[in-house]
Design a binder for these strands. Structure first.
Length: 425
DNA sequence: TCTGGGGTCCTAGGACCC
DNA sequence: TCTGGGGTCCTAGGACCC
């Protein structure tokens, strides 16, 4: 009889991922601190290690611009084509070295190392070295018996980078206790700002306190989520590796405009464009949607600005992925929502009630999407895959809208555009 | 002037049924 | 004035993640 091996997970996480991507193609910036901005150059969403002391996460760019200049910190607009491509390179490299990998986000992945007989810490160091050599991206590795502990191990590897060399194994009791005692409870995966505030009065301040708390009692007081966190910290694995990504249950496309919009016509263009993009995502996972939510709003922060925010859910005639049906519904909904006299800053399209083809059998005589539509949408995606996104699009979607995103500090698309390739003299 | 864009899961409470 | 006891399903909202 074979015994189930002790579970072992690794969490591999890219250091300052977006900033690192920018640096790979700009070796001249090796010693220049850099930050990367959110869409519309709104706020800071990534900082290289040498920029961290001077600027906080999520600080608005217009407020820190002067400070950045003073310390010689360079800002970049976000270049998602570049980051997406670099992420794939990193993940592919890791996949070649571990038995099973769950890509958890653009810059991190869990590996299941259960049953591996080699020295896992050494394996971690090999992963780090190879990813660095093959892609130029530095990563940290945390190893432990549960996902939550692996996350914490990774955090420790980053916090004590010099002492650990970027790899921490918490399977041994001594190391585990030390790290748990030296980590604030807020650093634990699954404990956010609110939960931290709730735990504080209970005398739970460190990860160690939480690991030794009464899991059942916390479940009663809060929810099953925190119970699992406590058990995971105490060493009982409750969260499995999710290798295959299930199709999304909701698809969202929401974006600030590059400038405030007051007229209906340009907002309609934006709504059509976001719907177009959402429908693309929908088809790429092979789903159909039956409901959409359309919402618009003004800015939130400026106290002198009149505020307005409203959304509406519309039901589609049948489960569909037809961009024409969806655009029509979205534009009609917008007519209901729009009130003149406001300065709008954002629109949002949410696709809901998603299902896979053939999954719904609620009514034998229900109307279904015509076969001709299926063929047309397939052709649309094929052409755009070959010639680039937006080659064929609905008439209401402009190619270069006036209200488009502000991205004034964008780097080249080194990996996805021939005319942006690096030149070597 | 200028403050991101996605997602997930859980729970409570209402509607409805027998 | 009195007015059951469940069960299920759905939705909205909260909390969290990167």
């Amino acid at each position: 009889m074979t015994q189930k091996p002790e579970p072992a997970f690794a969490l591999i996480d890219c250091n300052s991922f977006y900033a690192s991507c920018e640096r790979v193609f700009r070796p001249d910036l090796k010693r220049t601190p850099i930050v990367v901005l959110s869409n519309n150059d709104g706020c800071v969403i990534a900082r290289s290690a040498d920029a961290k002391p001077y600027v906080k996460m999520a600080e608005p760019y217009f407020q820190v611009r002067e400070r950045l200049r003073k310390h010689g910190i360079l800002a970049f607009s976000s270049n998602y084509a570049l980051y997406g491509e670099m992420s794939e390179r990193v993940m592919t490299t890791i996949e070649g070295m571990v038995p099973r990998l769950e890509v958890y986000s653009i810059d991190e992945a869990f590996a299941d190392l259960s049953g591996m007989t080699c020295n896992l810490e050494q394996l971690g160091r090999q992963v780090r070295a190879r990813v660095k050599q093959w892609t130029g991206i530095p990563v940290g590795v945390g190893i432990a018996g549960t996902k939550t502990l692996a996350k914490l191990a990774n955090h420790a590897a980053k916090t004590w980078q010099a002492q650990t060399g970027g790899v921490v194994d918490l399977r041994g009791r001594t190391a585990r206790e030390w790290v748990l005692k030296h980590c604030d409870v807020g650093e634990v995966w699954g404990v956010g700002r609110r939960m931290k505030a709730h735990l504080e009065p209970l005398g739970i301040r460190t990860a160690w306190d939480l690991a030794n708390a009464d899991a059942r009692a916390l479940r009663g007081q809060f929810s099953v989520v925190i119970e699992k966190t406590v058990r995971e910290l105490a060493g009982t694995s409750c969260l499995e590796l999710d290798e295959v990504e299930p199709p999304r249950q909701e698809i969202c496309c929401s974006r600030m405009f590059g400038e405030r919009l007051t007229q209906l016509a340009p907002i309609r263009e934006a709504v059509a464009s976001y719907t177009y993009r959402a429908a693309e995502k929908l088809r790429s996972q092979g789903s159909l949607c039956k409901k959409m939510r359309i919402a618009i709003r003004t800015g939130l922060f400026n106290p002198d600005e009149a505020k307005y925010a409203k959304g509406v859910v519309v039901e589609l005639p049948y489960p569909t992925d037809d961009v024409r049906v969806m655009t029509k519904a979205a534009c009609e909904a917008l007519e209901q929502l729009y009130r003149p006299g406001f300065r709008y800053s954002k629109a949002e399209i949410l696709l809901m009630d998603l299902r896979q083809r053939g999954e719904y059998t609620d009514d034998l005589f229900a109307i279904t999407q015509p076969a001709a539509t299926e063929r047309l949408m397939g052709l649309l995606d094929e052409i755009n895959a070959k010639w680039g996104r937006g080659t064929v699009r609905t008439a209401s979607v402009p190619l270069e809208p006036d209200w488009g995103m502000r991205r004034e500090l964008m780097s080249q698309s080194y990996t996805t555009r021939l005319d942006h390739l690096m030149r070597v003299r």
